[in-house]
């Protein structure tokens, strides 16, 4: 096994592309994505796992990237908001958020959308109550919750 070190050459697969980046052991996955790979769609809110703005998919599971060291994502698949659309064609969850006006300022939106994509993949968006429970880790200070639930319901019905 490797000796303990303070700095690492990290290899991660982001949105299907293998990326290599030098990181300090302290660097969170969130900071590696934003500051090193310049994928600033993933937002930094609380940095303490409480707001969900930094939600990404790690191997198809929703995680908060602020509570993970980048070195612990070595070799893993990460999907960010930048990886959802196919060219100019929005992902169904993105399209549903636009259709239902499911945001105001938009800061929490990438996290909301990634969380919704995860919830639908997990098969946990089967009713409004379940959507509310499953989206409870993503706060929206503008209070767009009603439209967020409608967007997730609609996207889930279309198969996400």
């Amino acid at each position: 096994m490797p000796e303990p070190a303070h700095s690492f050459m990290l290899t991660i697969h982001v949105n299907g592309v293998e990326r290599q980046v030098q990181v300090d052991a302290r660097t969170t996955l969130l900071d590696a994505l934003r500051d090193r790979l310049h994928l600033t769609g993933t937002k930094k809110g609380c940095a303490l796992g409480q707001c969900g703005a930094c939600t990404v998919l790690l191997e198809d599971r929703r995680v908060v990237s602020c509570l993970m060291l980048a070195v612990m994502a070595e070799g893993k698949q990460v999907t960010t908001i930048e990886g959802l659309a196919r060219g100019e064609e929005l992902h169904p969850v993105q399209a549903a958020f636009v259709e239902h006006d499911a945001f105001q300022c938009g800061y929490c939106t990438p996290g909301q959308i990634m969380s919704a994509v995860g919830a639908i993949k997990e098969g946990r968006a089967r009713s409004d109550d379940e959507i509310r429970e499953q989206m409870s880790g993503n706060l929206c200070r503008c209070g767009a919750y009603t439209n967020i639930v409608a967007a997730v319901r609609d996207a889930a019905a279309q198969g996400g």
Binding site: G49, G52, T55, L58, R61, R62, V63, V64, L67, M68, S115, G118, A119, E122, R124, Q134, S136, G137, N138
Partner: peptide, 9 residues
């Protein structure tokens, strides 16, 4: 417990 994201981690 916590949120779905935290429960996955």
């Amino acid at each position: 417990t916590a949120s779905p994201m935290v429960r996955h981690m």
